[in-house]
Write a protein that binds this DNA or RNA. Structure first.
Length: 117
DNA sequence: TTTTTGACCTCAG
DNA sequence: TCTGAGGCCAAAA
């Protein structure tokens, strides 16, 4: 659960995104859209993607490799240190990736809207 | 200050 | 079913 104090209501969209991503369990993946939906902006998926780019420079660790698009594709791999870093990170957690596509994506999917109620 | 551009998604036709 | 346009919000130009 993410604490939302009234005083922190103006917290950056990025911060909230980062917090949600940090809650994704190892071996599971989520999507930009799911996060956007959880944060209220149903069509703000694009913003989530932008937030992930900022996550690279964030102070706290953010498992950005667990966030992919709704097709289960690793669209953000080019933004990692190496083009294969994202896939390797996922495989290290037991996620099978073939041709930049997560296998059994449906069962690996972790939806914050339902998991965090 | 205005315009353009994103690791995307949804809706209308 | 498939394709195209619009939308979300912030940062860089």
């Amino acid at each position: 659960m993410i604490p939302r104090n009234p005083t922190e209501a103006h917290r950056n969209f990025f911060q909230e995104v980062h917090e949600v991503v940090r809650l994704v369990p190892p071996g599971r993946v989520t999507t930009y859209g799911a996060i956007a939906h959880y944060l209220g902006s149903r069509r703000g998926a694009r913003m989530v993607g932008w937030a992930m780019m900022a996550a690279h420079t964030a102070t706290a660790y953010v498992p950005a490799h667990r966030v992919i698009n709704r097709n289960g594709q690793l669209t953000g791999r080019q933004h990692f240190a190496t083009p294969t870093a994202m896939q390797q990170a996922l495989e290290a957690e037991g996620v099978v990736v073939v041709e930049d596509e997560v296998q059994d994506f449906k069962t690996r999917f972790w939806d914050p809207t339902t998991e965090l109620e």
